[in-house]
Lab assay of single mutants.
Amino acid sequence: HNLTITQGKLFFHYNPKLCLSEIHKMEEVSGTKGRQERNDIALKTNGDQASCENELLKFSYIRTSFDKILLRWEPYWPPDFRDLLGFMLFYKEAPYQNVTEFDGQDACGSNSWTVVDIDPPLRSNDPKSQNHPGWLMRGLKPWTQYAIFVKTLVTFSDERRTYGAKSDIIYVQTDATNPSVPLDPISVSNSSSQIILKWKPPSDPNGNITHYLVFWERQAEDSELFELDYCLKGLKLPSRTWSPPFESEDSQKHNQSEYEDSAGECCSCPKTDSQILKELEESSFRKTFEDYLHNVVFVPRKTSSGTGAEDPRPSRKRRSLGDVGNVTVAVPTVAAFPNTSSTSVPTSPEEHRPFEKVVNKESLVISGLRHFTGYRIELQACNQDTPEERCSVAAYVSARTMPEAKADDIVGPVTHEIFENNVVHLMWQEPKEPNGLIVLYEVSYRRYGDEELHLCVSRKHFALERGCRLRGLSPGNYSVRIRATSLAGNGSWTEPTYFYVTDYLDVPSNIA
């Protein structure tokens, strides 16, 4: 807008934040220059609390790290170098490059900038070799853009010569660093050979998330399962459950009422301010606690030095998902009996873990797994792929695949051998790939016309006998059925096997 004052003059007093240069501009645009008398524009009460600059400061050096910015700028000295009290560095987070010096300023003089007072450097006698002032900004957020400017702080001049310097606002972004852990990993099994893994992005990506790394490792069953005799009275049979499938998407929606109208769909109840505040506090606490764990609990591995020492970490090797089922080394339970199943799973520490690289999504279907087997899954978020990966501390989750139908069934015939004193040795093959492992066998036998009897055969007993022995049988026709019990439950009964026990007292003698 054009402003013209045809008559009258300007009068400025007691404006401590208004620089004289701005008042002189007002004289020019209003056409009143030359009308004012000496005392109409006070030299001592206008701009006496402001830094009124008329020179431009330029930054000469900028260096960044993930949490620091090192700045240096060209030296500046007023005509009387004693008038320079120091520099004021202003900075704040700036997602967009549209910041002005006066953003967030209120009537009390406060604003949204963080201000650092910096002492002037030592003055050199040689004007050509003056030290460049600077400042190291610490405690910054990774991968965050900051708006920065600097200006001088000078003393009051009796001659009211307006001098000083100020830089333009520059924008500097800190470097990326390792992201925080992925949030809320959930693993479920939808079949006997697959596990579905879902997660949420890290709360602090500290860069642009480029991919996720998912490692999985087959877990050995508890050692007590191999040692305890679950045929003993009072000892509860062990059981394991597989990871249940995901709930429906509708039930997972946030901010939804727990109660549904019987007449149909209901609208979600909005969260109160107290609920939102509580969630923010919980989120802040979780982030602080995660940072504490990362800094205190997890110790970084030592990389190899120039002395030739090897990095103890196993090298990563990509495998196809079809090879995942046989990740671990199978060892027989008892070496003397080769027909026992290889369900003991000690994992070799030198073995390469299978892994998958996930790009542009937060889910993965891990296939080719062994049925009813526990897996430990390790999830890392990465925001750099080359020249070397920059990934987060791992988040861990466990899951067990679903049982395989008929995996616990005894394959092959049940054979028998009759000894003296009416002892019958029953023999059968253990299931080759049971659900988890076989903890015991149930032997059901009966003599024709009598009630059915049951015998429990422990895992250890089966390994020693290759089956079991029935003792003290009365003469007669017998039928026997056997079924295995694994961590997933009972298998199917075998087809009945028949044998006849004679009275050993009636056996004919070869003595003449």
Score class of each variant (00 low, 15 high):
Ile209Glu: 08
Tyr212Gln: 00
Val214Leu: 08
Val214Ile: 14
Gln219Tyr: 15
Phe226Met: 09
Leu228Lys: 07
Asp229Cys: 05
Tyr230Met: 05
Cys231Gln: 02
Cys231Pro: 03
Leu232Lys: 05
Leu232Ser: 09
Leu235Ile: 07
Leu235Phe: 08
Lys236Gln: 12
Lys236Ile: 04
Leu237Phe: 06
Pro245Tyr: 13
Phe246Asp: 08
Asp250Val: 07
Asn255Arg: 12
Ser257Asn: 06
Glu260Asn: 15
Ala263Arg: 09
Cys266Val: 13
Cys266Tyr: 12
Thr272Glu: 12
Leu277Ile: 11
Lys278Asp: 15
Glu281Val: 09
Ser283Met: 15
Ser284Cys: 01
Phe285Lys: 12
Arg286Cys: 11
Arg286Met: 09
Thr288Phe: 03
Thr288Gln: 11
Glu290Leu: 13
Val296Asp: 11
Val296His: 09
Phe298Ile: 11
Arg301Asn: 02
Arg301Phe: 02
Gly306Ile: 13
Gly308Arg: 09
Ala309Val: 13
Glu310Pro: 08
Arg313Phe: 12
Arg319Glu: 14
Ser320Asn: 11
Ser320Ile: 11
Ser320Trp: 06
Gly322Gln: 05
Gly322Lys: 06
Asp323Asn: 11
Asp323Val: 06
Asp323Ser: 06
Val327Pro: 10
Val329Ala: 03
Val334Ser: 10
Ala335Met: 11
Ala336His: 14
Ala336Phe: 10
Asn339Tyr: 10
Asn339Ile: 14
Thr340His: 04
Val345Asp: 09
Glu350Gly: 14
Glu351Lys: 14
Glu351Ser: 15
Pro354Tyr: 15
Asn360Met: 10
Glu362Val: 13
Ser363Gly: 14
Gly368Pro: 11
Gly368Met: 09
Leu369Thr: 04
Phe372Tyr: 12
Thr373Val: 12
Tyr375Glu: 00
Arg376Val: 06
Leu379Cys: 09
Leu379Ala: 04
Gln384Glu: 12
Thr386Glu: 11
Glu389Ile: 06
Cys391Glu: 02
Ser392Met: 02
Ser392Glu: 05
Val393Trp: 12
Val393Leu: 04
Ala394Thr: 11
Ala395Glu: 09
Ala395Pro: 02
Tyr396Gly: 12
Ser398Gly: 02
Ala399Asn: 04
Arg400Ala: 07
Met402Lys: 15
Pro403Ile: 12
Glu404Thr: 05
Ala405His: 14
Gly412Ser: 14
Thr415Asn: 03
Phe419Cys: 14
Val424Ile: 04
Leu426Arg: 01
Met427Ala: 12
Trp428Tyr: 02
Pro434Ile: 04
Asn435Thr: 00
Leu440Val: 08
Arg447Pro: 11
Tyr448Cys: 10
Gly449Asp: 11
Asp450Tyr: 11
Leu453Arg: 02
Leu455His: 11
Leu455Val: 11
Cys456Gln: 02
Val457Glu: 02
Val457Thr: 08
Ser458Met: 07
Ser458Pro: 05
Glu465His: 11
Glu465Ser: 11
Arg466Val: 04
Cys468Lys: 07
Cys468Gln: 06
Arg471Asn: 10
Leu473Ser: 01
Ser474Lys: 09
Tyr478Glu: 00
Tyr478Asn: 00
Tyr478Pro: 00
Ser479Thr: 15
Arg481Trp: 04
Trp493Tyr: 15
Glu495Thr: 11
Pro496Phe: 09
Thr497Gln: 15
Tyr498Lys: 12
Thr502Pro: 08
Tyr504Gly: 07
Leu505Val: 08
Val507Tyr: 05
Ala512Val: 06
